[in-house]
Simulated assay, not measured.
Amino acid sequence: MEIKAFGVEEWLNTWENDAIYDIAGSSIASLTLEEIFQLGSGKEKLLSQLLPKKMNYGWIEGSPDFKEEVAKLYKRVKPSQVLQTNGATGANYLALYALIEPGDHVISLYPTYQQLTDIPRSLGAEVSLWQIREEDGWLPSLADLRQLIRPNTKMICINNANNPTGALMDASYLTELVSIAQKVGAYILSDEVYQPLELGLEIPAIVDLYDKGISTNSLSKTYSVPGIRIGWVVANNQLTDLFRKYRDYTMICGGVFDDFIATHVLRHKDDILQRNRSIVEENLALVKDWVAKEPRVSLVFPRHVSTSFIKLAIPEETESFCIRLLKEKGVLLVPGNRFDLPGYARLGYCAPRDVLVAGLAALSDFLRQYD
């Protein structure tokens, strides 16, 4: 099986530990274990529940409490439809591994998280790229989708909101997308790790809109806990049973400790979302002010989604610029060519505020060499 190197992960593996100001990531500033333990009734009560637990395999598909908390995130999902995975990457892989065969036709949003294009290719599928467009707020055209779709299209893959741009398909857009997929009976796989935190904005999960919709998610982005590798996939009962069979070949369990922490985090999600909403709102305002003053940067602003994609007006290849920026200023971005979009860079504006402020100042100082 042939597969391309994973551009973003390869970049981060190479350079992340060299950063002084890491503003490349797409998570919201991570919680400490101390902060997690203070949620709810406090550390002592939580430890009294945790310390007696045996470090055996635990619940294979995720504990009943975990499944119940995940099901609450959706309108039409029962706990029996929830399967715990190794992050959203494990959830995406499981769905693709179980459904895609050689010769299948898959349509994938592009550029997006690389799994959604290159895993289907590695499994022998023909993949049509559904291009996002900056002039349309980094959304792809539904008219283009109608041109790409075929009677035998097996699956449409989306990332909502999009990585790296933060572009968001709203309810009306998703409803039309479902209508297009229904005409040929195509599955829709939706990676939904980037929940928008804009007040009053509710984006439905694809599993709640479409019987052949598959929603994947994790605690890594919106919930600020990438340190436990817990995600999930939710789908209809028939698909969930199919995924169970394939899941046995990819993992046993998420682990007793990780399951316990994940369940605790989800039980107190409102507190975390309130904290994270403030981070997103304050940091996005800071970035908007910075972009307004920085002549060599422009940005289609995300709707309180934790990733953004700046455009750089510089006479230099993007990756070499980012390497020099890191080596000379300690600032880490992800160059846009890692998403096949040279001239741009992923800016993780939901880093801790002091890191963001210092990183943006150093980036502006570095950009002055071109003036």
Rank of each mutant, 00 (worst) to 15 (best):
E101T: 03
V106S: 03
D170P: 01
Q182Y: 14
K154G: 03
D144W: 07
K154V: 06
E126W: 14
D191I: 06
S128M: 02
G103D: 05
I119Y: 12
A161T: 00
V127C: 04
W138A: 12
T165R: 02
Y187G: 04
R150W: 14
S108C: 05
R133H: 07
Y187A: 08
T112M: 08
V106M: 01
Q114D: 14
D191F: 06
Q115K: 09
W130G: 02
Q195S: 05
I180L: 03
E202K: 03
V184R: 15
S172C: 13
E135R: 15
P102Q: 11
I188Y: 02
A167C: 07
L129G: 01
V106C: 02
D170G: 07
R146Q: 15
G137D: 08
N162R: 03
L199R: 08
Y110L: 00
Y187S: 06
E134S: 14
L199A: 13
D136S: 10
Q131A: 03
A181C: 09
P120A: 10
D118M: 12
E176W: 08
G124S: 10
R146I: 13
S108I: 03
G103C: 09
R133L: 09
N162E: 10
L99G: 03
V127Q: 01
T175A: 15
C157Y: 00
I188H: 06
I100H: 00
N163T: 13
G124D: 11
L139K: 12
L174D: 09
D170E: 14
V178F: 15
T175V: 13
W138I: 12
I107P: 03
L129W: 06
G166I: 11
L123T: 09
I132F: 01
P196V: 01
D191Y: 09
